[in-house]
């Protein structure tokens, strides 16, 4: 167990320090890579809360990333080009607040409907709502429609400057650690225990007097808000958002990160995101056909690796 904690600490330290070090040595590319990694990992942590701990398989979480990014892009767009004075701002607190609010409300409204159904129906209905968001943004010409929206100015906060890539990375990394801590706390709380109980046997929890629907809905909303937050960071990082980010294939990639890393673990999502980013980067520089080995790996992981990558850590670490 000691060694497991050690390995995990090492990975966290590497995620934080290595990119900064490489950037300092004149390789800013790795800093960008690590920023993207942290942002995707935040989303994966958010998805893990319901997919891993709650057993709710959402196939539409890319929608929250999109909503979060548009919540940054749309106010900035109006601030520059006029119209919609109510939300026209570059103030980061307003933009991030909007991202959390919109994704929270969207999760609440869709959750009320989605959580009435189970199993494969839940997978499909979450996907259906994400597709609705996808088509909504495709059809709004003002925000670029199909082509997407260029976010001309990043969110403005006092003291930190998002245009500075080192500072943006540090914010993303710290956010990631905070979100990991948050979800870890939730999973250990009474709320998290009830959630785990619902995943194990919902009937039993109902019989014990819990209103399971409310618990699931709360987890669903928190998960959506975490992904919305991640989307707001993503908008600031890429300074561009298009409906393509909401496509169901993106939701599939998020699921892949969670499963690959190991569901219902604090560390799984970040391991999954690291692997995903590395694979994407390494394979796509070797060949334009990088989806082939990537797909094969995905199939291999699903068929042969039980419990994901984080299950491998104690095996390695506990060898005496």
């Amino acid at each position: 167990m000691q060694k497991k904690v050690f390995v995990q600490g090492l990975i966290l330290a590497a995620v934080l320090i290595l990119p900064l070090l490489l950037n300092y040595m004149g390789h800013p590319f790795y800093l960008d890579l690590a920023t993207r990694l942290c942002i995707l990992a935040i989303a994966a942590v958010g998805l893990n809360l319901i997919l891993g701990y709650g057993g709710m398989i959402s196939f539409g979480h890319a929608a929250y990333l999109g909503l979060g990014a548009y919540a940054v892009g749309i106010p900035a767009h109006h601030w520059l080009y006029g119209g919609m004075d109510v939300i026209a701002t570059t103030n980061g607190f307003v933009q991030f607040g909007l991202a959390l609010l919109v994704s929270g409300i969207f999760a609440l409204l869709t959750g009320l409907i989605c959580l009435k159904v189970k199993g494969v129906y839940f997978i499909m209905i979450t996907m259906a709502f994400a597709q609705m968001v996808y088509y909504l943004f495709i059809s709004i010409a003002e925000y670029g429609g199909d082509d997407g929206l260029v976010i001309d100015t990043r969110s403005e906060f006092p003291l930190v400057n998002f245009d500075n890539s080192t500072q943006l990375f540090t914010i993303c990394a710290v956010s990631l650690f905070f979100v990991m801590w948050l979800v870890w706390r939730i999973s250990k709380s009474q709320f998290g225990m009830v959630l785990a109980g619902i995943k194990g046997n919902e009937q039993r929890m109902i019989a014990m007097g819990y209103n399971t629907f409310v618990y699931k809905l709360a987890a669903y909303v928190i998960s959506g808000m975490i992904c919305g937050f991640s989307g707001a960071l993503l908008g600031n990082f890429t300074t561009f958002i298009s409906p393509e980010m909401i496509d169901w294939a993106r939701s599939g990639e998020l699921m892949f990160m969670v499963i690959l890393g190991g569901v219902a673990t604090t560390f799984g999502p970040i391991l999954g995101a690291i692997t995903f980013i590395i694979l994407e980067e390494v394979l796509s520089t070797i060949t334009i056909y990088w989806h082939l080995p990537f797909g094969l790996l995905l199939i291999g992981v699903v068929m042969f690796v039980k419990g994901g990558l984080s299950a491998l850590i104690p095996k390695v670490g506990d060898k005496e």
Partner: peptide, 23 residues
Amino acid sequence: RDHLDHVLGTFGAILVIDTLAHM
């Protein structure tokens, strides 16, 4: 397996088949 594994496994298969078609 459960539906989650079906979704992920066949999602991987999509990537493989699409890339082969691309090649």
